[in-house]
Nucleic acid binder design. Sequence first.
DNA 1: ACCTGAACACCGTTCAAGT
DNA 2: ACCTGAACACCGTTCAAGT
Lengths: 242, 242
Amino acid sequence: MSGDGRRTPSTAPVERERLSRSLIIDAAIGQVDRDGVSALSMRRLGKQLGVEAMSLYRYVNGREDLLEGIVDELVGELEVAPEKGLGASNGWQAYIQWLAHEVRSMALAHPAAFPLVATRHPAAPWLRPPLRSLRIVEQFLNALIDRGFTGEQAVDAYRTFTSFLLGHLLLETATLGAETGPASEPLDEGNADVPNRDEDVELADYPTLLRLRPLLSQDDTEAEFERALEALLDRLDMSLSQ
Amino acid sequence: MSGDGRRTPSTAPVERERLSRSLIIDAAIGQVDRDGVSALSMRRLGKQLGVEAMSLYRYVNGREDLLEGIVDELVGELEVAPEKGLGASNGWQAYIQWLAHEVRSMALAHPAAFPLVATRHPAAPWLRPPLRSLRIVEQFLNALIDRGFTGEQAVDAYRTFTSFLLGHLLLETATLGAETGPASEPLDEGNADVPNRDEDVELADYPTLLRLRPLLSQDDTEAEFERALEALLDRLDMSLSQ
DNA sequence: ACCTGAACACCGTTCAAGT
DNA sequence: ACCTGAACACCGTTCAAGT
């Protein structure tokens, strides 16, 4: 707290760039990535930026708007490629494949923030998470239409594709959080010198679960994503040709 | 605040039943349904129950545990039917159809609470939302195995089915919230005397979106759910016979 | 056994005031 | 123009105390 106008780096929270909306939002994303949404507060965010919380209100319209900003930023980072060498026949399949992985990368890069993208109410009822910006939907529809879809088919594909992404990516980020766990909780259940782990006790009542546990535990979410994506492409393909 | 030990009804918040965990959780669900999760606070909840907030801590291990309780209660309400007349060939399709609608009913009955079911970290990494209780998974696996699935096929079906439910139901509850809107926003659709509504201005930059807006707007989520469910059944059917 | 009062540390947000 | 101090109303949570 010692005052100084010096430009000496010191060990202050951050180099104290001039404040701006996107600077604030980036810091917020970092905080969410590190400690989760519930740990994100205006006051903590201000502290990290070397500023009083009240200053943030110049650039951000309160906490809700900050969360909105996070979502917009993450969705905005998706580059819906202006060509990547794809274009011939089967081009639409390559395009969807590529976009699917693009979105998945974003989700896995920000697993704690992805639920915001998934659950905040979109700006319009026909904007569906996680492809919830006008820009992205426009590009998506155009990409498919350029590759032979009718408008109706493109809209259909938008619907099935968003559902697919939401289901798989939210599941992946949710269980990913479960592995990391609620941080430092040593698993409090049956805490009597723990003769039998709580989980095992309960499992005893569920024989099929117990038997199939090995199968259930080995989930390769990556492979599952790929398989489901193939199934999605097949389904779209069928509805195209009929 | 006027004291009385009388049993006269009065206009007090609630009849002041003896407090209990499930009473508290039910009240919490009601509060979430009415005003959303962010409006749920220990103090407000206490008030509604005619009790000081601190009393709740006898039955509930803090706010996080309360949210956990809400999820468990909602998932627990799903009856994974001990027979409903289904059993013959094609029995597994009827079963999955039925369960899908069961879960959908729950989600639509509690659209504001469903994101909790969808995004809270499950107790085990292999428990996947929204079918995230040991009891339900056990019943689900048994139902399929009884109808001819191998263990591996049943586990596969669990994975694809949960992804399907999560994607569709979260999308449905999310956009459903958007229609109800952030409260008091007067429905911007073609709002005549306003020369150009904010949204229209933006839309002007997105010609394809503008052209396809009618198609995008008319989404019958019910029909979409049914169609996707059929596709899911087909996909499972194919992986069974091969 | 069950509930409460008082207290603590934190929160979002407003607004007049500083520079 | 940009940031802050002080204040307000609210929050989760603990704990000694009441009945």
